[in-house]
Amino acid sequence: MLNSQPLTITGIPAADARGAVTFRVTVPADFATGAHTLVITRADGSTLARLGVQVVPAGSLARTGAEMSWALGLGAFGLIAAGAGLVALRRRSRSV
């Protein structure tokens, strides 16, 4: 349950043999942004954990991974090809 703006989260699976639980929560689009407290309770209603979470506006999270432009990729390929060509020429001139 998120206490700062009550939202009951249902369908959370039971813990596995190690005691681990993995689940996904969809926050409604009109949910208030800012700091909230996620309270995880046991089946008997007792509190297992309280976690601070931050709700941010849609689209404001940073992207992960890298997006390389075509120009940068082609430039890198060109440098690698030029280097390979120079190595091949140098080996050829040594063997003659």
Score class of each variant (00 low, 15 high):
L2G: 00
N3S: 14
S4E: 14
S4F: 01
S4Q: 13
P6Q: 11
L7H: 08
T8E: 13
T8R: 11
I9V: 15
I9C: 03
T10S: 13
T10A: 08
T10D: 09
I12E: 06
I12W: 05
I12R: 04
A14Y: 09
A14E: 13
A15G: 10
A15C: 01
D16M: 05
A17V: 10
V25D: 05
V25I: 15
T26H: 07
V27R: 00
P28N: 06
P28A: 08
P28W: 06
A29S: 06
F31N: 01
F31K: 01
A32H: 04
A32T: 08
T33M: 00
T33Y: 00
G34A: 02
G34V: 02
A35S: 09
H36Q: 10
H36V: 01
L38N: 02
V39R: 05
I40P: 00
D44T: 06
G45P: 02
A49H: 09
A49Y: 08
A49F: 09
R50G: 05
R50L: 08
R50Y: 02
R50S: 15
L51S: 09
G52D: 15
G52R: 12
Q54P: 00
V55Q: 06
V55E: 04
V55K: 04
V56E: 15
P57E: 12
P57I: 08
A58K: 12
A58S: 15
S60N: 11
S60L: 08
A62P: 03
R63T: 07
T64F: 03
T64Y: 04
T64G: 12
T64P: 00
G65K: 02
G65R: 04
A66P: 00
E67K: 07
M68P: 02
M68I: 11
S69V: 03
W70D: 14
L72G: 00
L72H: 07
G73K: 15
L74I: 14
G75L: 14
A76F: 14
L79N: 07
L79T: 03
L79D: 03
I80V: 15
A81F: 05
A81T: 10
A82G: 07
A82N: 04
G85A: 01
G85P: 00
L86R: 04
L89R: 12
L89G: 05
L89S: 12
R91I: 11
R91Y: 07
R91N: 14
R92E: 13
S93C: 04
S93M: 10
S93I: 09
R94I: 08
S95P: 00
